[in-house]
Amino acid sequence: MATKKTKTLKDVTTVSTVNASQFIPLTDASGNTTKVSLAGLKAALLGGINLNSINDGVFIMFHRKSDDYPLMVKPDKWPGYQSSGEIAEGVVVVEGGKMLVVAPTEADSAGLLWSSAAVSGGGKTTTDRLTAMEDWRGKASTAAQIKHAECNTASYAPGFCAKYSRTNANGKGLTAGMWWLPSLGELFCIYANMRKINYALSLINGATQLAETWYWSSTEYGATPAWGLYLDDGYAGGYTKAASKGRVRAVSAFLR
């Protein structure tokens, strides 16, 4: 009598991709085995789910090159616009009745100092974490801070953001002077939507995603430190302006 040989899982060839000729076996309650394709399984699992709703509240903005009109589109619509030559100026986040544009790129990954020396920049200043978290005055604070020579160059966080620029093929869009260093409250808004923002950034040519490390804010702790926020665990603390190098990502407003 012949002996039936059974192939164990370890003897099965491992593949890294699935093609149309490959199937997954399924067994029903009666022990009957059927097969289903990957596409069929995916359709069954995702049936009734609107994947676009996962990215609600996040858009990609640009100034249309035909007439320089500012628009923002849902992430799934962006590849079509980009292929026609449009240039993204940022990712729009709509949160709590506020709108914030997050820049597609940031300062060098090595980070920047906030200033060259201890300086009272004139922005929102507090040592209380909860008060700092409620600060949404990033634009006004940055405008005050860049009046000081200690932080008014692209080598320092406030100056870098003030000089940041994104434009369309006509040179129109969110130019230098329209961007600012986000306040701690604005950074928390970015942190709360980080996954969705990074997905939108992944669709923009040349964009860099937000990193799970700490970023400078325009909210000041005092003359020597300013507030920073970790985008991995939400830790907020004061860092020495002239000694600590943190990531820097500029933000702006949509309607310009």
Rank of each mutant, 00 (worst) to 15 (best):
D233E: 07
H63S: 10
V58M: 07
R249P: 02
P182E: 00
S30P: 02
V91H: 04
K10H: 14
A29F: 12
G96P: 14
S115D: 04
G234W: 14
N19G: 12
L231M: 14
A243Y: 08
A207P: 03
S183W: 02
L26M: 15
S30K: 10
F59M: 15
K35H: 13
K139H: 09
N32L: 13
M72S: 06
T34G: 13
R249C: 09
V15W: 01
S66I: 12
Q22C: 08
Y69E: 08
K241E: 08
A176W: 03
A117F: 01
V248G: 01
L229D: 04
A39I: 14
I197P: 05
N52E: 15
Q209F: 03
T219I: 11
A157G: 07
S109K: 12
R166K: 14
L41W: 06
L100F: 03
S66N: 09
T125E: 15
M1N: 07
P79F: 01
N152P: 05
T208P: 03
V93C: 07
R249W: 03
S165G: 08
P104Y: 04
G246M: 10
S202W: 05
M178F: 02
A39N: 12
T13C: 14
W180Y: 13
T175S: 09
A242C: 15
I204L: 10
A140V: 03
K7E: 10
L46M: 10
D11P: 02
C151E: 08
L210A: 04
V91Q: 05
L174Q: 11
S116R: 07
I190M: 10
A169V: 14
P79D: 10
G138A: 06
M194N: 05
T125H: 07
A118C: 04
S116K: 08
A154Q: 03
L181H: 05
D76M: 10
L51T: 09
H63I: 04
F160C: 05
V36I: 13
N50E: 07
E86A: 06
T6Q: 11
K172D: 13
I54Q: 11
A140P: 00
L38T: 11
